[in-house]
Nucleic acid binder design. Structure first.
Length: 960
RNA sequence: GCGGAGGUCGCCCAGCAUGGCCAAAGGCGUAGGACUGAGGCUCCUAUCCCGCAGGGGUUCGUGGGUUCAAAUCCCACCCUCCGCACCA
């Protein structure tokens, strides 16, 4: 077994034996409750889960080290349809699917057989998942674990829905869904063979009159075009029916009649006939009362809406094309006994004014694009383009009655409701393109009646939800407005279904609570599930009154105890546990859950809990990519949590993911990078171990001062970043930046023997512990410290350890090094000898004066010169000063305000001593003889006369 | 289409709120060197272009604009990713 693996197992076992992550209320400590949306158990946990949950774990571990009492519970989502579907595919012997389970998920053959039982399947993945979560080192309190089909949990959901209903948030109504006639259930995107993303769309039916009591309901998305109608199109070859729809008589396609029956319409078909029977007849526009002819159109699809289309050649390219085609084919018309003059007489009627077009936009666009006829593929593009333009910038003309002058955008909804009220229009829903179910059946639209909804449209509820958001911390902050727009945008949500696993709706009738709707406030259940499990509380005891007491302090404990058999002290403990932990402080998920789960969580908390229990914080992160692609089992790039840990180790997996991205950016999993990181960690361990062994002496020079000062800044940065869940920044600083500081120190120092260094390394490990806990525990134990680093005290930024002088001293060395390098590069030589000359004291007087001036704004050369002239001590140097001042001012534009302030604070720096102390360092680095002089030194070696160029913080340099 | 997030020096990605300290942090990769029996381990150096002296030139999706000054502010355009509902 590899060292990594051994180490992981060792610490996992020790944590567990110590019950380290089991959290109980402790009145002396502040708490943090962090959560992760329970994963759905129709498959293994993958690196996407790992990324999101690693952020939670890093935060949890960080807060725990800061002294908080941290609770991180975990559970498993079993309710819903996919588990059932997956199990059925196994039962059916779906070879492709089974292959995925065996190869991607790594399910053993003998287990797979048992997957015909969906609950067995869920249990299998749950067990696997739990092991994976433990092996990656998430600091979870497992005593609160549950699955969503457990009867005790379902009692909680019953309470939730009973409460929501009582408060009026549950309503009943009808709703159109994509429906599989064979499965007799809605067909969601996941259940489709084809037609992903297709949703039912509402067609407006304009009820043109064939006669006084027979209607031709022509379908359109653009009812405003009724003013521009010139004729109607009917497909002569397809079957139409005359049917009683409600109390009216409609002529529609045969298919349409069937569809309407699924849409809560009463349809009685009276007779069936071919479309050609209608061709040549005339009909009346209900609004203008004018008459128009019915013409043959083979492009009319009986499967779309009513199978009747009215023609608006001025604005619809297809209509114009069809008309033009007919005008060129008298023989076709003759077949139907229509005279050529009828068609010739049809002139487009312009009703919309659009910028960039004249009277007849459809005619123009057809000609511009050179579209041949109605079968030309470009006709589709023309239609789209024109529609977009007309919708956004089109204005209705005076021919449009009361709607004249209005833009289409603003008038559309009004117009529809007006038409419906007047009885000119009706509507039906249909699919814009074909949808096929996984069972290979063609789907239809079905309007479900008596459907139960969560009424997210309720303005009062929306308002409450916004109040919840207002008091929350949302990381990153840019996600906050998004939540507000989602709250505005959410409508009624069907919260019950008839198939799949789930909690029966408490008011029965064969409904099951929909799976996104049963996972909105369950975080509160974690607080008490520990007691339910420990005391084996039976589901029947968990009455709604019990939850009312625990969560809302309603009712009398003694009474409740008597009726339910739960000990009253236990009830009080449950109440107290809830009070201690709730509300949760952080819930982190990927951004795809913002418009649903996370927003539902907000709504439901607003509905069920008083403000003191409203969520405190959400974290939102990007979607994990794998080698630049979205991860999919079918793409063969699916990486499980278990597999990643086995291959790269827990620490590298966690850190590899967290270094990928933060905020809402999508992190990218690059296997090579993770592999490198694993090697890096091996190196880090060797590095840290060697320091731990050697750091024994009491050195405390400026270099140690620098190291400690730097560390303080790292501590500050990491702490701040973690507080805002900027896990990438935090890890980057903790791991790489701090490591670089240590490297620099060791190089400059030449050894690793200072005790101070050992102390810094301990703080370094602490900062890394939230990210790479196994490695850090291991190293921590080697430092001789007692206890786990997982609960060691988080380092605190100590201002007293900030050593400005030491930092500036190092900056000088760094700058000198950089300048020397630049010179060497320009000269393209290998140096033999390098000489540095530091500035004399009167230059410091000049320099610091200028620094001060630039801090408080513009440094004016003439003013400065005046001041220097008036200083008699500078008199002998005025010529030099005159040439130096502009140079210094320019150089200072590249210096930060902070550094300038430090320069002023420190005053004159003994550069000669500092550089002389660094001679060995420079010597190693440049592989050349190094000499350091002050320009005032009498025995100065200065063959090129460079010494006089020395400026404070910029020693002159000579190279040969 | 609607809503959200983005496009930075080979790659991943900081910076953009509060314009100047930005040729722009860090990681990866690459090149050279050190260490080593050897090393794909580790360490150092370099990595936009030019420069025999610490300097100069051209960059931050594209095109404009504001400003003494723009990766950062404004406008337009192009491209990528995510969500859009009965589904986890």
């Amino acid at each position: 077994m590899s060292r990594t693996k051994q180490m992981e197992q060792k610490w996992q076992q020790r944590w567990e034996a110590a019950h380290l992550f089991e959290a109980d209320p402790d009145p002396r400590r502040e708490k943090k409750m962090v959560t992760f949306p329970f994963p759905y158990m129709n498959g293994p946990l993958h690196v996407g889960h790992t990324f999101t949950a690693s952020r939670v774990d890093a935060y949890a571990r960080f807060k725990r080290m800061q002294g908080y009492n941290v609770l991180w519970p975990w559970s498993w989502h079993w309710t819903g349809q996919p588990l059932l579907g997956a199990s059925q595919r196994v039962a059916r012997g779906d070879a492709a699917y089974i292959k995925v389970l065996l190869e991607v998920d790594g399910v053993p053959e003998e287990e797979l057989k048992k997957f015909v039982d969906p609950l067995y399947m869920a249990q299998y993945y749950t067990n696997e998942g739990r092991m994976a979560v433990k092996s990656i080192g998430f600091s979870v309190d497992w005593r609160r674990e549950f699955t969503t089909v457990m009867p005790t949990f379902q009692k909680f959901i019953e309470w939730q829905y009973k409460s929501l209903k009582e408060k009026g948030y549950v309503t009943r109504g009808t709703h159109p869904v994509v429906w599989c006639p064979k499965d007799k259930s809605p067909t969601g995107d996941h259940d489709r063979q084809s037609g992903e993303g297709v949703t039912p769309e509402e067609y407006i039916l304009i009820k043109y009159q064939l006669s006084d009591n027979i209607f031709l309901p022509a379908a359109t998305f653009r009812p405003e075009t009724i003013y521009g109608i010139t004729n109607m199109w009917v497909n002569p070859d397809v079957d139409y029916v005359e049917a009683e729809v409600g109390s009216e008589c409609w002529i529609i396609s045969k298919e349409a009649a069937e569809k309407l029956t699924d849409q809560e319409r009463k349809v009685v078909v009276k007779r069936s006939f071919k479309g050609k029977e209608l061709v040549g007849k005339t009909f009346t526009n209900p609004i203008t009362r004018r008459e128009f002819p019915i013409l043959p159109g083979w492009f009319v699809d009986p499967k779309t809406a009513t199978g009747l289309v009215y023609s608006v050649p001025a604005h619809a390219p297809y209509d114009y094309l069809a008309l033009r085609d007919l005008q060129q084919k008298p023989e076709v018309l003759a077949q139907f006994g229509i005279g050529m003059e009828v068609v010739r007489a049809i002139k487009p009627i312009s009703i919309i004014k659009v910028e960039g077009f004249g009277e007849y936009p459809a005619v123009e666009i057809v000609e511009q694009m050179g579209i041949k006829d109605q079968n030309d593929a470009k006709a589709e593009d023309a239609t789209k383009e024109l529609y977009k333009k007309e919708f956004h910038s089109g204005k209705l003309k005076e021919t449009c009655g009361q709607y004249a002058g209005k833009s289409i955008r603003e008038v559309k909804d009004v117009l529809i409701s007006d038409f419906k009220k007047a009885g000119f229009a009706d509507s039906m829903v249909d699919l814009s393109s074909q949808v096929v179910c996984r069972c290979m059946t063609q789907c239809i639209v079905k309007v479900l009646s008596d459907q139960w909804f969560l009424n997210y449209s309720d303005p009062h509820w929306k308002e409450l939800a916004k109040q919840v958001i207002a008091q929350m911390s949302i990381y990153p902050e840019v996600a906050k407005p998004w939540f507000n727009t989602v709250v505005d945008w959410l409508r009624e949500w069907a919260c019950a279904r008839t198939t799949g696993f789930g909690t029966p709706l408490p008011w029965g009738e064969g409904w099951i609570i929909e799976t996104l709707s049963d996972s909105t406030v369950y975080m509160s259940f974690y607080t008490i599930n520990k007691y339910i499990r420990q005391n084996d509380i039976k589901p029947e005891s968990l009455t709604p009154e019990i939850f009312d007491y625990i969560f809302l302090n309603k009712g009398d404990v003694k009474e409740l105890s008597k009726t339910t058999g739960i000990d009253s002290e236990l009830l009080v403990s449950m109440r107290n546990e809830f009070l201690y932990w709730y509300p949760f402080d952080l819930r982190n998920s990927a951004k795809e859950l913002v418009p649903n789960h996370l927003s539902f969580c907000i709504f439901h908390h607003a509905a069920l809990f008083p403000p003191q229990f409203w969520p405190k914080g959400f974290g939102v992160n990007g979607m994990l990519m794998v080698e630049g692609q979205s991860m999919h089992k079918s793409k063969g790039n699916f990486i499980t949590m278990k597999g990643a840990v086995e291959k790269y180790g827990a620490d590298a997996t966690r850190c590899g993911l967290l270094l990928g991205a933060e905020g809402m950016d999508d992190p990218d999993w690059r296997a090579d990078n993770v592999y490198d990181l694993k090697n890096k960690f091996d190196g880090l361990m060797t590095f840290a171990e060697s320091i731990i062994v050697t750091a024994k002496n009491d050195d405390n020079t400026a270099l140690e001062g620098w190291l400690q000062s730097r560390l303080q800044q790292r501590i500050k940065a990491v702490t701040m970043a973690l507080d805002e869940l900027k896990t990438r920044t935090a890890l980057q600083t903790a791991l790489f930046e701090t490591w670089n500081d240590l490297r620099w120190y060791i190089q400059r120092k030449g050894n690793t023997s200072a005790k101070v260094l050992g102390g810094v390394v301990k703080d370094w490990l602490k900062m890394l512990a939230p990210f790479a806990p196994f490695m850090c525990e291991e190293l921590w134990s080697q430092t001789g410290e007692e206890g786990f680093i997982s609960v060691a005290k988080w380092p605190i930024y100590d201002y007293a350890k900030i050593d400005v002088a030491a930092e500036e001293q190092e900056n000088l060395v760094i700058d000198v090094m950089a300048d020397t390098n630049n010179i060497l590069k320009a000269m393209k030589i290998e140096p033999v000898k390098i000489v540095y000359y530091t500035a004399v004291s009167w230059k410091w007087q000049v320099y610091l004066k200028i620094v001060k001036k630039t801090i408080f704004g513009q440094a004016k050369i003439n003013e400065l010169m005046k001041e220097f002239t008036s200083d008699t001590s500078l008199k002998p140097h005025m010529k030099a000063i005159a040439s130096m001042v502009p140079k210094i001012i320019k150089a200072l534009t590249k210096v930060s305000g902070d550094r300038k302030a430090n320069m002023v604070k420190i005053g004159v720096v003994d550069e000669k001593t500092i550089l002389r102390d660094a001679v060995k360092f420079f010597n190693d680095r440049f592989n050349a003889e190094i000499q350091v002089f002050s320009e005032s030194d009498v025995k100065c070696f200065d063959p090129k006369g460079r010494a006089a160029m020395a400026i404070p913080y910029q020693p002159a340099i000579y190279v040969e």
